[in-house]
Amino acid sequence: MKYKTRNKAIILLQDGTIFHGKAVSNIKATAYGEVCFNTGMTGYQEIFTDPSYFGQLMVTTNAHIGNYGTFAEEIESDGIKIAGLICKNFSYNYSRPLADKSLETFLEEQNILAISDVDTRALVAYIRDNGAMNAAITTELDKLDDIKKALGDTPEMNGLELASKVSTKEAYEVGNPEATYRIAALDIGIKKNIIRNFVKRDCFVKVFPFNTSLAEMKAWNPDGYFLSNGPGDPEPLAEAITLAKDILKENLPLFGICLGHQVIALANGISTFKMHNGHRGINHPVLNKDTGKGEITSQNHGFAVSRESLEANPEVAITHVHLNDQTVAGLKLKSKNCFSVQYHPEASPGPHDATYLFDQFIENIKKAQA
């Protein structure tokens, strides 16, 4: 243990419930956000840097966090995106030879408050029963009245637009300009491993800001269009929904993941909803209705596409179903070159059951070119 004594800390939930813990680093700080949990047994660095988690306080259900340190090449964005970390056992020492720094240093460098020694099983059980809600984590126990007031003023995730907070400000290109395929990707919270998956399939990728129009994308002469994952409620994303509608009008190859999947649904008049506590982990079972095969998938979302609304649309079909709760995990348009999934086929750090979806998109591009 690095510190002989550590400051006391608490998690204060929106409904007034308090859980106790200790600060990982002895700093005086408070962080606010929607509290959520991830059940993954590995991949904490990828989770913390996933833009889809922007504005959320992350509870890790795996008992040990930090034991293999961090590695610069395994981040999924330009930095940590979670608002704060809540865990059971925090490892100050790490044993992975490939690691270049400790998780403690990684968090401290980006001013992220972390709390350990929390009864995370009790906290997760409470969230599962009572639903996702805003919370504060703090070591400033002498300021609880002010913290309670600030927590009350923290906006709800439902109706909150966050894609603009994590999207690139300027378009950028990745890969070989002489590659066979050109992919225009809308960044509403894109993960680096999505881009890597395109590049290794002989694609040249241009990543565009969240509010880019189809005309701007078409000027680059892409072969296919991609709508990324990302944080927050999809309904406020008016520009992205308009973009999806415009792409579909011209029947251009379109692929969406997570938030992009929800945007495609909204572009077709299919509603979305805020889930009770969401799906976050790397072991979620999904049925591919086209093949009859089961897939173990990586998931991270607090909103979902309404199954009732989708089934009322004769132009759209459900392709994948989440086997735990029968929610929509994938869709396709019957008369358009478009499909999307609610989970993460790039799945950094895994599993890799669904990477075929990138190949499916390339096949759709080939068909459009034929």
Rank of each mutant, 00 (worst) to 15 (best):
I194T: 14
M217I: 03
L214M: 08
L214G: 02
F226E: 13
N221G: 00
G189Y: 12
S213H: 01
T212N: 09
F198A: 08
S213T: 09
N193K: 12
L214C: 06
K218E: 09
T212K: 00
N211E: 10
I188L: 10
W220L: 14
G224F: 10
P222N: 07
F204W: 12
K200I: 02
A219Y: 12
F208W: 10
F208K: 09
I194L: 06
L214Q: 03
F210V: 15
R201Q: 11
K192C: 08
D223I: 09
F208R: 11
S228F: 06
N211F: 14
K206Y: 09
K200T: 02
F226H: 14
F198D: 06
L227W: 07
G230L: 02
Y225E: 12
P222F: 13
G224I: 15
N211C: 08
K191Y: 06
P209I: 06
I194C: 12
I190H: 12
V205A: 02
N221R: 11
G224K: 09
Y225W: 13
V205E: 00
N211Y: 15
F210R: 07
K200F: 00
S228L: 05
W220E: 14
K191R: 14
L227Y: 10
V207Q: 00
K191I: 12
I194F: 05
K191H: 12
A215F: 05
V205K: 00
N221I: 10
G224S: 13
G224H: 12
G230W: 02
C203K: 02
R201F: 08
R196W: 04
A215S: 13
K218R: 11
F226W: 08
F210K: 14
V199C: 04
Y225H: 15
G189R: 11
P231Q: 07
A219E: 15
M217E: 10
K191S: 13
V207L: 00
A215Q: 13
L214F: 07
W220R: 07
I188R: 10
D202A: 04
K218D: 05
E216L: 10
G230S: 05
L227T: 05
R196I: 01
R196V: 00
I188H: 09
L214N: 01
L227N: 10
I194N: 01
